[in-house]
Amino acid sequence: MSGERLAVGEIELEVVRHGAGRAIVLLHGFQPIDSAARFVELLARHGEVIAPSSPGFGHSERPEDFDTVYDLVHLYLDLLDVLGGGVTLVGFSFGGWLAAEVAAACSHRIDKLVLVDPLGIKVGDRETRDILDIFNASPEEVRRSSWHDPERFAPDFNAMSDEALVVYARSREALCLYAWHPYMYNPQLPRWLGRIKVPTMLLWGESDLVVTPDYGRAYSRLIPGSRFELIDRAGHHPEIEQPEAFAERVSRFLEE
């Protein structure tokens, strides 16, 4: 826990900052980004990693009536204004949805976009759910679907401190508030993904069962010129299960 804060307008966010140089903004998924994560260290060799916790997640306060994805998207549009231009935006899972929204609204502020197992769109028909309902599936199913190697990587709640467990529960509550309905997607987003004009890479854990690689391929088709790559032996969180492979793909993409 860095304890650092980042002010965006009147909102103060907990933030992980690491490294120096070009801004690499990370928008987290279901849980905030761990400052000690190996992939953060690896990415920080290529610029300054800036990973805020969204309001309600981690130790970031959630202002009253700040409770929609609309709020989150505008918060991060504001963040781009604060940082100036030339940002590399990386969004994971739920944060991938936010990153896609931000990029569709404001791609001139962004140099490059990386989406890692992003959510946010509806691909299947009305009777086919694309995204595992993590609030309505058994904890065992969520665990099994999220990780290629759950034994090694899934959180061990018994080993976590009380404080870490509270942060975990708090973040889950915030996620539920923002993304309950429609569940984890914006029906209008596919129409506007074509506005993304920056080089874009989608990375996908090959074993992801929260949201499968086929969903990722469909996502990629909606973003002009984007490319889609799989990461082996990884589930919904390739940055955690395969940090080296993940960082290598990102750094190659950044250097192109």
Binding site: F135, F157, N158, M160, D162, L165, V166, V167, Y168, A169, R170, R172, E173, L175, C176, L177
Partner: peptide, 14 residues
Amino acid sequence: PGRMPPEVQAQNYR
């Protein structure tokens, strides 16, 4: 989520 405060719910994970 939301049925009890996170401070209370957290222990359910153990």
